[in-house]
Design a protein around this nucleic acid. Sequence first.
DNA 1: ATACGAAATGCAACCGGTTGCAATTGTGTA
DNA 2: TACACAATTGCAACCGGTTGCATTTCGTAT
Lengths: 358, 358
Amino acid sequence: MNNTPPDPPVEARAARPTLAQLAHVAGVNKSTASRALRGDTAIALATRTRIQQLARELGYEPNASARRLFYARTDVIAFTLHDFRRLESGSDPFIAELLEAVLNEAASHQLDVLICRPQPGTAELDSYHRIVGGHHVDGVIVMDLRPGDPRITYLCAQRFPHVLFGRSSLEVDQAREYPYPWVEVDNRAGARMGTEHLLALGHRRIAFLGCGDVYTFELDRRAGYQDALAASGIPYADELCTPSGASQEDGCRLTTELLAMADPPTAIFAVSDVLAVGAMRALRDAGRTVGADFPVMGFDGLGLGAYLQPQLTTIRQPLGNVGRALVRLLVATLRSESPPEHVMLPPELIVRASTVSG
Amino acid sequence: MNNTPPDPPVEARAARPTLAQLAHVAGVNKSTASRALRGDTAIALATRTRIQQLARELGYEPNASARRLFYARTDVIAFTLHDFRRLESGSDPFIAELLEAVLNEAASHQLDVLICRPQPGTAELDSYHRIVGGHHVDGVIVMDLRPGDPRITYLCAQRFPHVLFGRSSLEVDQAREYPYPWVEVDNRAGARMGTEHLLALGHRRIAFLGCGDVYTFELDRRAGYQDALAASGIPYADELCTPSGASQEDGCRLTTELLAMADPPTAIFAVSDVLAVGAMRALRDAGRTVGADFPVMGFDGLGLGAYLQPQLTTIRQPLGNVGRALVRLLVATLRSESPPEHVMLPPELIVRASTVSG
DNA sequence: ATACGAAATGCAACCGGTTGCAATTGTGTA
DNA sequence: TACACAATTGCAACCGGTTGCATTTCGTAT
């Protein structure tokens, strides 16, 4: 039984032949082989099938770099992460859920996806220069936009195909159509809906837990929060809206500070589920009970919200739809099929035990 | 103020010049420009700085495809996902945590990362043929191995650089050194540790909740489970080890079936945290209390375990270390610096409220 | 002034595919 | 048998970098 010779487990290296080698074996010219493989009917059927068969036998695969060089096209798109984004489920599952949808949709368009995180210690735009200028990819998905985002400026100046998740600044986009597609969740309406939910529960001092006013999505959510207050005739209190940071720890810390105020808030609207988790921890540590007693709500609608105790009320972003739309619109732009589409998706209020008792 | 002309927001397309164009502007030959940009001291210092300066002004970036064609190297590595893996935090945060570490480590080696999910409806190996044969990437990270995994066979036959997270079959690797690096968490020891924890709590009928015997990691964990039973003189009961599937729902369903047995288990060891979550739900639905009363433990040590109510006892895999090691070893292989390293990392038992009461 | 070696730059081929066009072969018709 | 024309296939240039080697330019020693 076990008398197989002690070969190394790797066989002699398979040749992975080039087109020239394949053609040589087939006894035809490189160009003939190329046409045969692409199914060009100018090549006689017999020759065509013979070469295709041979290619299969030899395991021929066209060299991607050579092809890309000729076509000036890579069939790869980039998914670019901002510095603060983390994939780990503990800190930022948001990206993971979005990426999942992007990967699936990209696969169905025969595109590969390159994930780019800015190199630590380099300027933010460096990776864009390299990736975009060097034609590493055909298009870019950009998220976590800020007003006047320099990445957008660069991509537009280069006329490089891209799609935004979000918008870089309200003013510009309202004045004239942005010449590239974007997908956005109506953050303002969502935040208003969430704040109204807390107002309907009878709360008047509602803290707005943000991560800092840098990002457009936060500005929009803050505006929605203010809309809701104004509609109820409640004055906006700046001390209830101190920014914290993006992590759970930040949310926990700021909530502790809020509770120590002379006139503390009676409910918390967090700008993300992750911050809400931190707020819940702070409240628990302070001996408070999260729920109808002291409501906390998040924003994003991540899967983890359903695991929490109590389960988290949140504004769900349809990240699956967002991811699919991003890729679909980017593909349309690459094919320049049509003027850029701008998609605004509605968020959804999910009421759970963290704001109302079971 | 607002009297700026109604230009389109994109400026005239920046040229993104080629090397030839750059050289022409500089009044030198293509080859001189190339050498100047790479800092070749054969080029006079004055010429060199002049060309570098010009390149900066024109925003020149070398074309990646051309460079890759010449060097037969892409500086991209592939992270290949198996069919059943999902990134969403609700279903499989495992990948997200691993990927996070891989991305960071890759960035520090100046490598880009391509994420590959097999195209739906195509043979498993198709994406490997395309990516590997077509030189899309320099190396591949492979995970979710099965005994006799065809991907491994292919990669070895092609002598294509790769690194495994896990091993494809115990027998082969024990008989002789695998010629490529791998990183593994000691699944067998981990599962034994976990099972012993449940045994120490006095349990004798411990269910092993698996996702099917396809993957090596599960076979190893099952072996560790059996080791622990054997060491305590407890007979292995096949009916307590029915496989379920990979999702929460699978874990929930199988647990419900287990509870309906004539002689049901009194504790559950799940092969993954995700399955454990499903088991906990089934128990809650059945009116049982998870904890000292009916312990449930998982495997993986994902961040979500700390959010659960009760918090989940688990065997933590050091996914950060795994990810860093995978990239580091793959890079070493690409540089063929040294014979392949094989790294075995110890898992860690994290005892929380799902097996012992607070 | 002449020669000579070093310094600086240019020429051309190459990486592996693709394609316009020319050249060859083969078929049908006058 | 000769000729027109279609069907096949080959030649060569190109995509945008890189590099071996030849060539030019310069400073310096004789």
